[in-house]
Simulated assay, not measured.
Amino acid sequence: MTSDADGIDTETEAAEQWQLVNTPLGEMWSGRTRYAAAMFFFKRGEMNAETLEVYRICARLDREDPLPIIRDRGVGREWLKRIGDAQ
């Protein structure tokens, strides 16, 4: 188990945030949930600013999938690989 300065289990937190960034489209507040989780990965250096910006844009659009936008913009290739959406 790895803990941060506040004693939070970082592995557990990352697993929870991973579930949140993959919240199904169309659920109420799902866009905001995905954006909040994306911010977590951005702060850890696991997502670039351009990819985070797409999640921000989609935050109020619960049915909008940010992944095709990220792919179209060509800004988050590493993130797409990680999330399993690289084409």
Rank of each mutant, 00 (worst) to 15 (best):
residue 61 L to A: 13
residue 25 L to V: 06
residue 17 Q to N: 13
residue 58 C to I: 02
residue 15 A to V: 02
residue 13 E to Q: 14
residue 62 D to F: 04
residue 64 E to S: 10
residue 73 R to H: 08
residue 82 R to W: 09
residue 4 D to S: 08
residue 72 D to T: 01
residue 40 F to K: 02
residue 6 D to C: 08
residue 7 G to L: 01
residue 40 F to G: 08
residue 48 N to D: 15
residue 72 D to C: 06
residue 10 T to W: 01
residue 41 F to C: 10
residue 56 R to V: 03
residue 41 F to S: 10
residue 30 S to Y: 03
residue 52 L to S: 00
residue 54 V to G: 07
residue 1 M to I: 10
residue 46 E to T: 03
residue 30 S to D: 11
residue 11 E to Q: 13
residue 52 L to A: 05
residue 79 W to F: 14
residue 59 A to P: 08
residue 5 A to G: 08
residue 15 A to P: 07
residue 34 R to T: 08
residue 26 G to S: 12
residue 71 R to F: 07
residue 5 A to L: 10
residue 38 A to E: 09
residue 70 I to F: 02
residue 8 I to G: 07
residue 42 F to Y: 14
residue 2 T to M: 10
residue 42 F to A: 09
residue 3 S to I: 08
residue 3 S to K: 11
residue 51 T to A: 11
residue 59 A to M: 11
residue 70 I to T: 05
residue 26 G to V: 01
residue 5 A to I: 05
residue 63 R to V: 13
residue 49 A to L: 03
residue 25 L to G: 09
residue 22 N to T: 12
residue 68 P to S: 03
residue 43 K to Y: 11
residue 28 M to G: 10
residue 86 A to L: 13
residue 87 Q to S: 12
residue 38 A to V: 06
residue 84 G to A: 04
residue 33 T to L: 06
residue 59 A to D: 14
residue 68 P to F: 00
residue 77 R to K: 06
residue 13 E to G: 06
residue 61 L to D: 12
residue 29 W to F: 15
residue 70 I to C: 07
residue 53 E to P: 04
residue 60 R to D: 15
residue 33 T to H: 05
residue 17 Q to I: 04
residue 65 D to S: 12
residue 54 V to I: 14
residue 42 F to S: 05
residue 6 D to K: 09
residue 63 R to H: 15
residue 40 F to L: 06
residue 48 N to L: 04
residue 51 T to L: 03
residue 55 Y to S: 04
residue 44 R to P: 08
residue 10 T to G: 13
residue 76 G to E: 02
residue 84 G to E: 03
residue 75 V to G: 02
residue 25 L to R: 10
residue 8 I to F: 07
residue 71 R to Y: 11
residue 12 T to H: 11
residue 73 R to K: 14
residue 40 F to T: 00
residue 29 W to I: 12
residue 85 D to C: 08
residue 70 I to K: 00
residue 85 D to G: 06
residue 6 D to W: 12
residue 44 R to H: 13
residue 81 K to Q: 14
residue 56 R to F: 06
